[in-house]
């Protein structure tokens, strides 16, 4: 099991090799990539940043949870930080397991938990030159609406505190 934040392009082949095991009957690789449109706007790139020590800790914790819940230690996750262009991979998750269903279930668990819990942020660059922080619900996260509304807005990606604290 290995999890890391990295600042270089990601290699799915290398991660797949890392989880390979003759005891596994299935290997899965999830690759998250920079998409050309978001909420109808033309995207040209994304800056990824993190609260690195906590993000590393949370990634490791999520991998450990998946290992226990789905029964495999063959989990490798790399999340890239920095400026990415269209089509580049921001995250790769590789899992292998004795059985395919558990491998795919673990994969799904890992990406969904990462998206709600790991303190990583993205700022999209748009074709019109504007840049904006966005959340994992797909929307821009600031700069519109009435002053003072900040603390009244519904939490859009707050983790389940009962579960993680």
């Amino acid at each position: 099991m290995r999890t890391a934040l990295v600042d270089h392009p990601l290699d799915p082949t290398g991660l797949l090799a890392e989880v390979a095991d003759v005891g596994s009957g299935a290997s899965t690789v999830f690759v998250g990539t920079v998409r050309r449109t978001n909420q109808g706007r033309a995207v040209t790139g994304i800056d990824y940043s993190a609260y690195a020590p906590m993000a590393e800790r949370e990634l490791a914790l999520i991998a450990q949870e998946a290992a226990e819940q789905f029964g495999t230690a063959h989990i490798v996750i790399e999340h890239r930080l920095g400026t990415l262009v269209l089509g580049e991979a921001s995250i790769i998750i590789a899992v292998s397991h004795e059985r395919r269903a558990a491998a795919m279930d673990a994969q799904r668990y890992l990406i969904e938990e990462i998206k709600t819990r790991v303190p990583v942020w993205k700022r999209e660059h748009y074709a019109d030159g504007e840049r904006a922080w966005v959340d994992n619900l797909g929307g821009a996260t600031g700069a519109t609406g009435a002053p003072g509304a900040a603390t009244d807005a519904a939490p859009s990606s707050a983790p389940d505190l009962a579960e993680v604290s």
Partner: peptide, 28 residues
């Protein structure tokens, strides 16, 4: 986050804590 763990609104703070403001996350 307090000491790199998500905290509740009623968590008591100490000056020795590592305290971080975590806007809506967008990893993955």
């Amino acid at each position: 986050a307090v000491n790199q763990r998500y905290a509740r609104p009623d968590t008591v703070l100490s000056p020795a804590d590592e305290i971080a403001i975590i806007p809506p996350v967008a990893g993955g």
